[in-house]
Design a protein around this nucleic acid. Structure first.
Lengths: 211, 211
DNA sequence: AATGTTATGTGATTTTTATAACAGTTGTTA
DNA sequence: TAACAACTGTTATAAAAATCACATAACATT
């Protein structure tokens, strides 16, 4: 299938979680405007996204929740082979993200955690063993890890990310404030300070368009 | 001045930090292609952003770093009144973000932290006092806090965000997985699971356009 | 059966964002 | 001083994303 737009993928991830909650509540169908309301977006947006993934609803009945969840799963999780994740650098942020992962029902599988702190190596973090970062490549290969969450101190970001890619990782979620450039792997970056400063810019009385 | 594009603001935040580092290294001018390289974007993008904020470089000499930093500060931080920030919910993620804030040289001022856990109330987190969330409105008004970082458990997100806005907060950075809708305040949301699932989707051999 | 209402599905349009193309200016070199 | 090279500033174009507008189908009501 053709690659879907980034924003659509982001929304699909959210649709899935909201839909799962509805399913657990015993609902089996949902209208585009209901789903839209739950995420504060427009019904057209919902219908277009669903159209793009080739799902089709029933007129006057809405979308079948169970089928839709399954389809989104096939798109994001890649039905065939499950995707394994590692967190590299298990400081405060790494541990916070681990909590989010463990408390969500994503199909992504946290398989390993890495750090260079001898006090942490060998410990279990939320049920996942912390490995010595020296063994990065070995463990990534052994556990068939394809996705890495990078939460190391900034001075290590460049070197470690290169080693991750070298070990065969296909995608990195980079939370360090260092901008990276990867060859042969997908990269997504999130900068905490940048988003806060963005809020600071727009959250001003002089920018009154949200009033 | 007219409102700047969101993406431009995001990049300005990054320009500033990179530029500050260069300034500390003793550099006083920088070319668009140098700045671009540091952030892995194109020189045109840099020049366009700088044009949009009304700064002007010197031909064959590049941009004056000191002036540029100052101008970005006036845009983001709002030179006149400094902006005060609070973190609401000081769990693992809240503490991780606090570390980021304290270790960055952003001009945003962390003034308060809130929680409902009696063990935390009264404690200092990285130099900032943790208040009882019952006093949210009182403290927000007293400390003139305009920006809130929301890191409470999902079940509290809606209610607390409403109370934040009621207390006069102008912008919320929402890290809970609950989608919010605010009236009269700017809202930015970041969903940890969504970005990871996005990486999962694009980081697949079948999507080989990054190879 | 005719009419109205409620939803879906999608082509057309607009908005936002990024890229390309290039004019103009300053300095350098032959 | 003529020709060239290196950069900035900006207009024009393209690409990505969101929204609008509306055709169409299913059902309800009269």
């Amino acid at each position: 299938m053709k690659l879907l737009p980034e924003r659509t993928i982001e929304r699909l991830s959210k649709y899935r979680r909201v839909l799962q909650r509805e399913l657990d509540n015993g609902t089996d169908h949902i209208y585009s405007h209901e789903l839209a309301k739950l995420l504060h977006i427009t019904p057209v947006q919902v219908r277009r996204d669903i159209m793009l993934i080739g799902h089709t609803g029933t007129l006057r009945k809405g979308y079948g929740i169970e089928n839709l969840i399954k389809l989104i799963g096939e798109i994001i999780d890649c039905s065939s082979s499950e995707q394994n994740v590692a967190i590299i650098g298990i400081g405060k942020l790494g541990q916070a993200l681990l909590e989010y992962l463990n408390s969500s029902n994503t199909r992504l599988n946290l398989s390993a955690v890495f750090d260079n702190n001898p006090d942490k190596i060998g410990d279990s973090f939320g049920g996942t063993l912390c490995h010595n970062i020296d063994n990065l490549k070995k463990i990534i290969i052994r556990e068939n890890i394809t996705i890495g969450i990078l939460t190391v101190p900034p001075e290590y970001a460049k070197e470690i990310s290169a080693r991750m890619v070298d070990a065969g990782i296909l995608g990195i979620m980079n939370y360090t404030p260092v901008s990276l450039k990867l060859d042969h792997a997908f990269l997504e970056e999130y900068d905490v300070i940048t988003s806060l400063e963005k809020v600071a810019y727009f959250a001003k009385p002089r920018h009154a368009e949200f009033l």
